[in-house]
Design a binder for these strands. Structure first.
Lengths: 340, 340
DNA sequence: CTGAAAGCGCTTACAG
DNA sequence: CTGAAAGCGCTTACAG
């Protein structure tokens, strides 16, 4: 395993010069640089990131905290982040933390508190004050993508507007009996994604002069199997069947479609369904949805992190700070006019 | 940011003793240790992994190379690996490499070649000789989960047997016209997962004295939308419709079910479908499948890595070396007796 | 059981 | 433009 001293010796320069030649920082005569580079590649020299980090204080490594990897939205975000980070020469250290628990505390208090990452990106996690403090205390830039909990740099779609738009789409089609398959925790955590979408739904309904029956809102984990179970419960009830359904995510919507199928409820004739996300299956299932663009969101989060870390001399670390991330209503065959 | 010198001073010992007390390596008097630990926690000391790595040569970090994160199987594996690594106090650095290309070369020749990871786990990647060499040359333990390309430590299901079993299940139900939705590259890369499953299918057919028509094997990316498209092509053809279909993965099978639905082909009455994986949606869709257990596989891969790294003094680094990972045929409503 | 010293592999002022 | 030296924060023989 060659070290920089080997390169220096072979090139006939000092370690300092070798370092400068290889890193591109500081003045080096052009032919010197070439000799050094040639020497390095000849013996297969690769800099030790640990040694470099120790002196520069930079690790070229970003921690990503994410509650799931196997949900479409999160997987796409993660892929987007990974690609962008790799392109910038950064490593990605993955912390797949669940809602809460000792494991999560360990990630924030131990893993992230060490000097191994330069910054952290939190995807869809509701951060506690303590967690944010732990990072700020270590002077680690923190970029949040969705989720909640105070952080300076936050990128998010307007989930409340998403909920309103989805609901208004259904209202506009003449539906009045509109149920909502909300994300788990929507009621208890109004600031969460699930909570915001629910609030948007409620707002649209209220504006339309409709008060949903309490049983018209059912909470579910945002997965297809859970959405399926929740929808069976909602749609299987003998009375009061809704004519339309706003699912908090496309994955929930797929489950609802399957439940409707199983119960012999025709979509969209008997039941219109709208989801959120723009999942890769949405087109195949003809699902009306509010698209968002998680891969792009991940890339954006990396942009912000890089700016915060001073890579690429850009003045404003948060170009569109405050502006919500783009979304788009895509109407497909799963929604139609309310039955007479 | 306190350093170990601060802890030592506060506890009234040398840095050496503080280091020993904190790491648990070497003799330290019990009360000394307690004083050191108290001092450390009082000032919120956390060891610098970079500095420690530099001297020990160990980073407590494992690189994971994986072609997708947003396919069910890979997502589950990744989650399993992450949990197991975290529990062992290791970090996970994620490299999401696509099939091939310059990006992939950069990961192997630069990122993984540095001293930042102690070992690498390759999930479902077909490694080239050059890639394996690059790692072995750096003396990095390499554990492969599925995929192909020579590596000492390999964990894998017997994909050929999986293909045979799935096909025999259909043969046993009286089907003779059995199509196969194979994974992309099955023909060109016989050693790949897709290739092995295809080979198993062919073997079972041949054993039954049946030669599938070339048009009965269609390759597709192993995703649901791609499976959908491939199945439309396969099932939409006016002649020769198969009565059964072996899909190379559950995700492909879901796409095929949707295609059948769209074409008015009843499953299982007109068409039996069997998949592979034990996807979380399989039960909901009543899909017959050959289950495997990716989360558990990920955990197992970590076990092997840890043994290879000498954590936990276990004699044999590969307990079940050679034995294929468990799988199980789960019969559901998507397969039935062949129509008369 | 504990401490002084060397050293892991780099980078960065500081001189020249 | 280049080099000698110091130092990043730790751990590990080596003495005692």
């Amino acid at each position: 395993m060659p070290v920089i001293g080997d390169v220096a010796r072979l090139a006939g320069v000092s370690k300092a010069t070798a370092s400068r030649a290889l890193s591109g920082r500081g003045y080096v005569a052009d032919d010197t640089r070439q000799r050094v580079v040639a020497a390095a590649s000849k013996i297969g020299y690769i800099v030790s990131p640990d040694a470099a980090s120790l002196v520069t204080g930079r690790t070229k490594n970003v921690g990503v905290v994410i509650p799931f990897v196997n949900r479409w939205f999160f997987g796409e975000v993660l892929e987007g982040i990974e690609r962008a980070l790799l392109a910038a020469g950064y490593d990605l250290t993955l912390y797949n933390v669940a809602e809460t628990g000792p494991e999560r505390a360990r990630v924030f208090d131990f893993f992230l508190a060490r000097k191994r990452v330069d910054a952290v990106i939190a995807v869809g996690v509701d951060l506690s004050g303590h967690e944010v403090d732990a990072l700020e205390h270590r002077e680690k830039p923190l970029v949040c993508l969705g989720g909640s909990g105070g952080a300076a740099a936050r990128l998010a779609v307007d989930d409340r507007a998403v909920g309103t738009l989805a609901t208004e789409h259904l209202l506009h089609l003449g539906h009045t009996r509109i149920a909502h398959l909300a994300g788990a925790g929507a009621l208890d955590h109004p600031a969460s994604v699930a909570g915001q979408r629910r609030a948007g739904y409620l707002e649209a309904m209220t504006t339309a002069g409709i008060t949903p029956a309490p049983s018209d809102i059912v909470e579910t984990e945002m997965s297809t199997p859970d959405g399926y179970r929740a929808a069976l419960q909602l749609l299987g009830h003998p009375n009061h069947r809704p004519t339309a359904l706003f699912a908090a995510s496309d994955e929930v919507a797929f489950g609802a479609m399957r439940a409707a199928d199983r119960l012999g409820i025709a979509v969209p004739l008997d039941l219109s369904i709208v989801g959120v996300d723009g999942h890769e299956y949405a087109e195949m299932f003809d699902l009306t949805t509010i698209e968002q663009y998680p891969g792009e969101q991940g890339r954006l989060a990396v942009d912000v992190v890089l700016r915060l870390l001073g890579e690429g001399e850009v003045a404003d670390p948060l170009p569109d700070s405050g502006a919500p991330l783009p979304t788009r209503l895509v109407v497909r065959a799963s929604t139609t006019r309310a039955p007479r």
